[in-house]
C-alpha cells in the first residue's frame, strides 16, 4: 500500500463519524429542532458501545447498544423541548454536558481495555481493482453505512412524501399543524433518528477508530458535525462534502506537521476548522436566494387546543 493510499484510507476513517453524526442532526434540524447535544449523544454512544462490546464480546451488539444509548439520551432532550416546550439551545447544551459526564461513569471500568476493532468488509472482485478497489470496496461496514445513510436521507427528504411533511414541519410548524399533521410526533421521530445516528457515530469512534475507551474521546467532533450541518445549508450531499473536507484537512495537517512544514503547529491544527468553514460559507453565498434554513428552526411549538 502506498503512502497516498494510506492517507486516503485514514481520511475516510476520520470523516465517517463526522458524516454519520451530521446527517442525523441534519434530519433533526430539517424538522425544525436544534439539538446542540450531538457531542453528548455521540460520546455516550461511544462509551455504551464499547462497554457492551467488551462485556458480551460481540461488536454488533455493541453497535446496537450505542445506537440505543444515543436514542435514549435524545429522548431526554425530546421530553424537554417537545413535552415541556423548553428552550432548545439550553436543553441541547445541557444534553452535551450530561452525555460527557454520564459517559465517563459508563466507561470508567473499561479504560485502557484493548480489543480488536471491527474488520473491513471486502467486496469480492471489485476490491481487486487496482488502486480504487481497496479504497472504495475494502472498508469497514460503517463507511458503507454512512454513504447509504446520505443517499437514503437525500431520497427521503426530496422524493418521499414523509420527507416533504418533515420539511413542512420544519418550515412552518403552525401551518403544518393547521393542515392536521402531528408536529410533535414527527419531531420526536426526527430527534430519535438524530440520537441514533450520533450514537452510531460514537460507536465508530470507540469500536473502529481508536478501539478502546478514553474519557471524552469524541473530542469535539459532535460540535464539528453541528457546524457542518449549518454550513452545508441543510443539504445531505453538501454535508458529506463538508465532513470529508474536514476529515481530509485534519489528516493532511498531521502529515504536514510531521513533514516539518515551517508553520506553527497551532496554526496547522486550526486549519481544518478555518478552511471547512470558509469553503462551505463560500458555497452557501454562491447559491443565491432561497431560505437560509428551516424557518421554524429552534422555535418551540405549543399547539393551542
Amino acid at each position: 500500500m502506498t503512502l497516498f493510499e494510506a492517507i486516503i484510507l485514514t481520511i475516510i476513517t476520520a470523516s465517517t463519524p463526522l458524516l454519520i453524526a451530521a446527517i442525523g442532526e441534519l434530519v433533526v434540524e430539517r424538522a425544525g429542532v436544534l439539538n446542540l447535544g450531538v457531542e453528548g449523544m455521540m460520546v455516550i454512544g461511544a462509551a455504551a458501545g464499547i462497554a457492551a462490546a467488551i462485556t458480551t464480546g460481540s461488536s454488533s451488539f455493541g453497535v446496537l447498544v450505542a445506537v440505543l444509548a444515543g436514542m435514549a439520551l435524545s429522548l431526554v432532550f425530546a421530553a424537554l423541548v417537545l413535552g415541556l416546550a423548553a428552550n432548545q439551545v439550553a436543553a441541547g447544551l445541557a444534553l452535551a454536558i450530561l452525555g460527557l459526564g454520564l459517559s465517563g461513569v459508563i466507561g470508567a471500568p473499561f479504560v485502557g481495555v484493548q480489543r480488536a476493532g471491527i474488520g473491513k468488509i471486502e467486496i469480492p472482485w471489485l476490491s481487486e481493482i487496482p488502486f480504487l478497489g481497496p479504497l472504495l470496496f475494502r472498508q469497514d461496514p460503517f463507511v458503507y453505512a454512512s454513504i447509504a445513510l446520505v443517499v437514503a436521507v437525500w431520497w427521503f427528504l426530496t422524493k418521499s412524501r414523509a420527507g416533504l411533511v418533515l420539511r413542512a414541519v420544519g418550515e412552518n410548524h403552525a401551518a403544518a399543524h393547521a393542515l392536521g399533521y402531528p408536529v410533535r410526533r414527527i419531531r420526536l421521530l426526527a430527534i430519535l433518528f438524530g440520537g441514533g445516528c450520533a450514537g452510531l457515530a460514537g460507536a465508530y469512534m470507540s469500536l473502529v477508530y481508536t478501539p478502546f475507551w478514553t474519557s471524552g474521546m469524541t473530542a469535539g467532533r459532535g460540535w464539528i458535525a453541528l457546524a457542518i450541518v449549518v454550513f452545508a445549508s441543510w443539504l445531505p450531499f453538501r454535508a458529506m462534502l463538508g465532513a470529508y473536507l474536514f476529515g481530509a484537512l485534519t489528516i493532511l495537517q498531521l502529515h504536514a506537521q510531521s513533514a516539518g512544514v515551517p508553520l506553527p503547529s497551532q496554526f496547522l491544527a486550526a486549519l481544518p476548522y478555518l478552511i471547512t468553514i470558509l469553503v462551505l460559507v463560500l458555497i452557501m453565498r454562491a447559491r443565491r436566494g432561497g431560505a437560509a434554513g428551516p424557518a421554524s428552526l429552534g422555535v418551540p411549538f405549543v399547539p393551542d387546543r
Binding site: R161, L164, V165, R167, A168, E171, N172, A174, A175, A176, A178, L179, Y181, G290, A291, P294, A295
Partner: peptide, 26 residues
C-alpha cells in the same frame, strides 16, 4: 387561512401536495 398557512421554502406543488390526503406522486 388568513395567515401562517403556506410553506415559503417549498414549491407550489409541494404546498398543494401537503394539503391533499392521499399519496399521489408529486
Amino acid at each position: 387561512f388568513q395567515h401562517f398557512s403556506l410553506f415559503e421554502a417549498l414549491t407550489v406543488a409541494e404546498n398543494v401536495a401537503l394539503a391533499l390526503d392521499g399519496s399521489a406522486p408529486l
